[in-house]
């Protein structure tokens, strides 16, 4: 379970079909996969059959919980819906707690407009904190996402290579530090 390799899954935080967020999530997964000493996977919450009639531990998805336990950091790729985050994403995230504590998280906002999901990122920050996750200070903002990727998902705006690199440099650093802390530094 615990190896020198860092695990950084990407969570695609929407259930809607035909979304461009999927391209953004695939792009982030591919950028992580290029790094030595890091493994990743794409977790699409749209494929998860979690009941909506209960909450928390009672409806845990075993595969998702295992991925969260194994993770050293998370990347959330989240579209902005009416200035907020998709409700099902919150529902899914709330099914776990211990799996998140003292782990790093970075958020990528996605929007068709010019703000790049800045408002959904701001709205997610207190949620991340309450879940015990540690947020980094870099974001990736996929503004006007229809201009960032073509209809086949090919990256059109090469600046996102640099943006994602800065974001991931910080996330990996935080993931390493927090892993050392979780495993070696006792609470006073």
């Amino acid at each position: 379970m615990s190896t020198p390799v860092l695990s950084i899954p990407v969570i695609l935080g929407t259930t809607r079909h035909g979304h461009m967020s999927g391209y953004a999530a695939q792009f982030m997964r591919d950028q992580i996969a290029k790094r030595n000493g890091v493994e990743t996977e794409l977790i699409d919450i749209g494929t998860m059959a979690i009941p909506t009639t209960d909450a928390g531990e009672a409806i845990k998805d075993a595969a998702f919980s295992f991925a969260m336990m194994r993770a050293d950091a998370l990347v959330l790729v989240v579209p902005e819906y009416n200035h907020g985050y998709p409700g099902f994403l919150k529902h899914v995230l709330d099914t776990n707690l211990k799996e998140y504590i003292h782990k790093a998280v970075g958020i990528c906002g996605v929007s068709a407009g010019g703000f790049g999901g800045t408002r959904v990122i701001q709205n997610l920050l207190p949620v991340m904190r309450e879940l015990g996750l540690v947020t980094i200070f870099w974001d990736v903002n996929f503004s006007s996402v229809q201009n960032v990727f073509d209809a086949a998902g090919t990256l059109l705006d090469q600046s996102f290579l640099t943006r994602s690199e800065k974001f991931l440099n910080e996330l990996v650093w935080m993931a390493k530090v927090l892993r050392h802390g979780r495993e070696n530094v006792a609470l006073a």
Partner: peptide, 15 residues
């Protein structure tokens, strides 16, 4: 109030 533990050997997590 929960105590949270991590295993330095296998990466397990307990609360």
């Amino acid at each position: 109030l929960q105590n949270v533990y991590a295993c330095p050997n296998c990466g397990g997590i307990e609360m």
